[in-house]
Amino acid sequence: MPWLRQISVASSSVGCPILARSLGKSGIPRRSHAWGFLATGILLATIALSSACRIDMHVQPRQNPLSRSDFFADQRSERPPVEGTVARGQLHDDTYFYSGKNGSTPGDYMPFPVTKEVLERGRERYNIYCAPCHSRVGDGNGFIPSRGFSRKPPSFHDQRLQKAALGYFYDVMTNGFGIMPDYASQISAQDRWKIVAYIRALQLSQNATRADVPAGQTVPSLAPQFRGQPGSGATLPVVDSASASHSEENR
């Protein structure tokens, strides 16, 4: 590269010490320098590229939940426990709690006392898992069946279901009924019972008569005022504080 040599000689001759230093004392770049630059460039590029490959610590040789495994034939890392395995605290020895039945007849009592917290939890779980089909008030006019179910779910307020035992609802949630699938894998046993309690509360509230109203409360009670947009999913609408205090006064 004679032109490069010329330039470097020229620039050093006009007295630009920094440029001259960068090109070596003689002012002539040696071949080995060029190779050094190339090697450094390749090294830097390799480091930059290899840092983009997330191998070592990013993807560790272990199984994450539901990750794919090439070890097992079905490619699932989640393995079913050996048949007959009982996890700690899951020996289902309380048969009524886990089946809702005494023998083969559904029982009509709750396996634990119903408190306000139980009903609130039941309402929350009902609104998540049941309301899409059964509707928030349990009349069977949920939104999902209207999209093309062959049959609508029954209303909880018809004669048959009003008389049905508590254990019957639990059994349907656990094992399914008709076109309704079972919800045993989605809702825990404890929560299924809480939903049972809430269904009974819905049946009472939706079919209350004037005689059920405590003395001193106006009938019909004022509808609560909601503030802002309703929440999505099972999130209950926010009751306006003004109307909430109003209904407190009525109570």
Partner: peptide, 24 residues
């Protein structure tokens, strides 16, 4: 499924409240 049908997150992602993994 969320906006159009009003299904709650937890209907499908059942373990999100109790586990490290939300659940597919």
């Amino acid at each position: 499924h969320v906006s159009g049908l009003g299904i709650d997150c937890r209907y499908c992602h059942t373990s999100v409240e109790t586990s490290s993994f939300a659940g597919i």
